[in-house]
């Protein structure tokens, strides 16, 4: 087994070891994520009298949020636990610097391992959701599912790269938790977690098109729902690949600058 696959496997088994708390938190998290938006949008459609909002019916909007709740966990996980900032604060980065293995490849393997239980949750809750909610507004096909999973994979990578940069601020700041949460607020609003991007005004949507956040939730969900065809999907993947390269370059630049400040003794 390669080192990368071994790290993924170890991390996944660690995550699944606390089964009771794992399923309890997961069930409450999923029910509240979905429950709140269900009531908000049911009220929105009832009180506005519109048949469609942002180009979607109530049923399609509910489907959108259900998929955001399911796929979003595979993008973000419960929270970012790369521990990059902790390694910097505690001086734990020392051992990685002498390992004959890339630090960020190691951290990415850990992250993929953390995603394994999220994938399991999404499958279980997805099966339950199919039993209770009508997906008549979503045009699932084998193609849309394959393209959707590909979009989720790159969304996960984008999120990892963004958070990698944020956590490296720990080279300069004493605590980056607030910054981590602040970036999550921005990503949740501009990425399609809180609101489908189609409900924003046209000029705002034009701005959102050029930012990487829409690839986190809006893009994968729309692909899976069959709202995005193969050509537009391929174009989106190229754009997100460019964003990944740009974010990786920024991350490398920050890493090099940060290492010059790193003392290795912790705080």
């Amino acid at each position: 087994m390669s080192t990368f696959a071994h790290i993924v496997s170890v991390e996944a088994r660690t995550r699944l070891s606390y089964r009771g708390a794992f399923w309890f938190n997961a069930a409450f998290g999923f029910m509240s994520d979905f429950g709140v938006v269900f009531f908000v949008w049911t009220a929105m459609f009832a009180e506005s009298g519109h048949a469609e909002i942002g180009g979607r019916t109530l049923s399609a909007t509910i489907n959108y949020y259900l998929l955001v709740a399911l796929l979003g966990r595979m993008v973000r996980g419960d929270r970012f636990e790369g521990q990059i900032s902790a390694d910097i604060y505690e001086g734990g980065l020392n051992r990685y610097l002498v390992f004959p293995y890339s630090y960020f490849r190691f951290k990415y393997a850990q992250r993929l391992g953390q995603m394994a239980p999220e994938f399991l949750k999404s499958v279980v809750f997805g099966v339950l959701a199919i039993s209770f909610v009508s997906f008549e507004s979503a045009a699932f096909t084998v193609g849309s599912v394959i393209m959707g999973l590909g979009a989720v994979f790159v969304a996960n990578l984008v999120f990892f790269l963004i958070m990698t940069i944020v956590h490296q601020v720990a080279f300069w700041a004493d605590n980056v938790w607030s910054l981590d949460v602040a970036v999550w607020f921005v990503a949740s609003l501009l990425g399609g977690w809180m609101l489908p991007l189609s409900v924003f005004s046209e000029p705002v949507r034009a701005w959102l098109e050029v930012l990487p956040f829409r690839f986190l939730y809006d893009f994968p969900v729309r692909v899976l729902m069959g709202e995005i065809g193969a050509v537009e999907w391929a174009r989106g993947i190229v754009v997100v690949a460019v964003w990944c390269i740009a974010l990786a370059l920024v991350s490398r630049w920050v890493w090099r600058r940060g290492q010059r400040r790193y003392t290795g003794v912790g705080i």
């Binding site: 506005s48 519109h50 700041a173 607030s178 949460v181 602040a182 809180m194 409900v199 924003f200």
Partner: peptide, 29 residues
């Protein structure tokens, strides 16, 4: 630095919620 990060984080939370409700009220009264 954390002192200001935390102020910024909460301020951003306010902005996100104000934008959220403003966008919703574009579609309903």
């Amino acid at each position: 630095l954390d002192f200001f990060f935390r102020i910024g984080m909460d301020a951003l939370w306010y902005v996100v919620h104000l934008v959220f409700f403003t966008v919703l009220f574009r579609h309903t009264n």
